[in-house]
Amino acid sequence: MVKDTSVILAGIRLKNPVIPASGTFGLGYEMAGLFDLNRLGAIALKGTTLEPRFGNPTPRIAECPGGLLNAVGLQNPGIDALVGEVAPKVRSCCSTPLIANISGFSLDEYGICCEKADTCDSIDMIEVNISCPNVHQGGMVFGTDPKAAAAVTRRARQATRKPLFIKLSPNVTDIVAIARACEDEGADGLTLINTLLGMRIDIRRRKHVLANRTGGFSGPAVFPIAIRCVNQVAAACHIPIMGCGGVSSAEDVIEMMMAGATAVQVGSANLRDPLACPTLIDNLPDVMQELDIDRIENIIGIV
């Protein structure tokens, strides 16, 4: 029997639940020569701020057992370039739904960026990032306090009628409280989780490995944390979740969906293998067959 891998995410039908995560898929169009981007469920575009940003000094990457630390620091060409050039260019490569990822350093910045993204025909959804651990003001500050998370969600909600997701940080005591605050302010969905705050030290040079000292930890090692967060939030909230964190195989996609995710973002795996997403999509029907799943939508949140 043909397996149905499609899902409906905040009213938008995706041909499969697999989405390259923001910041791990370039500006969105780089891989168009390697595989057909139409095979992806959707694409989460590079995190974007009001002004262009160079990001942090290098080195920005440190390998770790089971993944890596990054401290890129939101390098991006700015919201005007996203809506004027980047998103239309990705759109010209594929008809896959595109998710703009918005970051900011103030409520107004989040609001203005969302307003601009709202006007862009190439953008189908907006994901507001209140969880970047690599910038020294803003970013994660908004994602670690329910009141601040609510304020950003409210401002973003005023700015757009497109489906609005809020991307949450795992670097909190109670992720459910923050998720509820976003739901209460009208978010259409949640993305969880962003990276975990980490650090490495070079014992020979007696220095931090990353120029920024701290970085965000991602990769297979964080998968159990992501599953836990998705499962807890899915039990408490009624809006769809994009599960993200350490997903590396079709089996991981199934596990994340059973935990409560409607769609699944793949991040670090793209950095190890740029064919990770299409490979995983290819493997999905076989794993569904093995597990006796005909429609993938039927397993969302069954555990």
Binding site: G26, G55, R60, L68, Q75, L271
Partner: peptide, 27 residues
């Protein structure tokens, strides 16, 4: 040269400042 993450232009780990703005060394 710079410490790279992906080597394929996806992660923006190896950026250098140029006269045309930030550029990825790998890409």
């Amino acid at each position: 040269e710079e410490r790279m993450g992906c080597g394929t232009g996806l992660c923006f780990g190896c950026t250098v400042q140029t006269t045309d703005g930030p550029r990825r060394i790998c890409h």
